[in-house]
């Protein structure tokens, strides 16, 4: 594990973790282990200033039940606020979070931010009995990546601007488009922190570009 850019910072990166429901605690623990500062986000005002400026350097949309997330987001203009936020600020969606970022959702179709040009099929690999842990090659440095799939969705289409970083049986499972990252598996449930490090590096990259 190579903590690249982040070690040079005087102040740790502040990363929001949407904590309406789901695996937010394990994401927060992983971020802490990499030297970033997680902030649990449950209300719109915890994410942005009254003028709309983000209070965090990046955001993680964790796994959980995407239908539950949507019920919570329907209130207090939270959906629209996040819809704008994810277009401007680095955001990493895992499992249910990836579903929220996708342009299209199937099985059943549901509302999403449509910020990342992918189509996602919910619960595509079956029920909990079909959940599995795989080790697959990736474009990240070094060894194959351990991937924990739990009632996982499947990315059935990627747009031309979307980069595939890892696959399972030919289907993309880790993708990036600009400042957005999405995984259909759960890197927060693995001891391998490379995917979270990739997200932190992506934020550093964006901060450096905007500083120039």
């Amino acid at each position: 594990m190579d903590p690249t850019g982040s070690t040079q910072r005087e102040k740790p990166l502040t990363i929001g973790v949407l904590a309406l429901q789901g695996a937010f605690e394990v994401h927060a623990a992983m971020l802490r282990s990499l030297g970033a500062e997680p902030v649990l986000i449950r209300r719109p005002e915890q994410l942005v200033q009254p003028d709309g400026t983000p209070k965090v350097d990046g955001l993680i949309l964790p796994g959980g039940e995407s239908s539950t997330f949507l019920r919570h987001l329907e209130r207090d203009g939270f959906f629209d606020l996040l819809d704008t936020f994810v277009r401007q600020t680095p955001t990493f969606g895992t499992c249910a979070g990836a579903i929220l970022l996708a342009t299209h959702v199937t099985n059943p179709s549901q509302r999403s931010f449509a910020a990342l040009d992918i189509t996602v099929e919910r619960n595509a690999y079956g029920r909990q009995l079909d959940s599995t842990i795989l080790r697959e090659p990736t474009t990240l440095s070094a060894d194959p990546l351990e991937m924990v799939f739990i009632r996982a969705p499947r990315i059935t289409r990627t747009g031309p601007g979307v980069q595939t970083l890892a696959s399972r049986d030919g289907d993309p499972v880790l993708v990036r488009e600009g400042h957005l990252l999405a995984a259909t598996f759960h890197p927060e449930l693995s001891t391998d922190s490379r995917v979270h490090q990739l997200f932190l590096d992506l934020i550093e990259e964006k901060l450096e570009i905007s500083a120039k």
Partner: peptide, 17 residues
């Protein structure tokens, strides 16, 4: 072992609800 991680992993997904 992977089986227990998958089991508690689903429980993680159900938290806060």
């Amino acid at each position: 072992p992977s089986s227990l991680r998958l089991k508690t992993g689903l429980a993680e997904m159900l938290k806060g609800g």
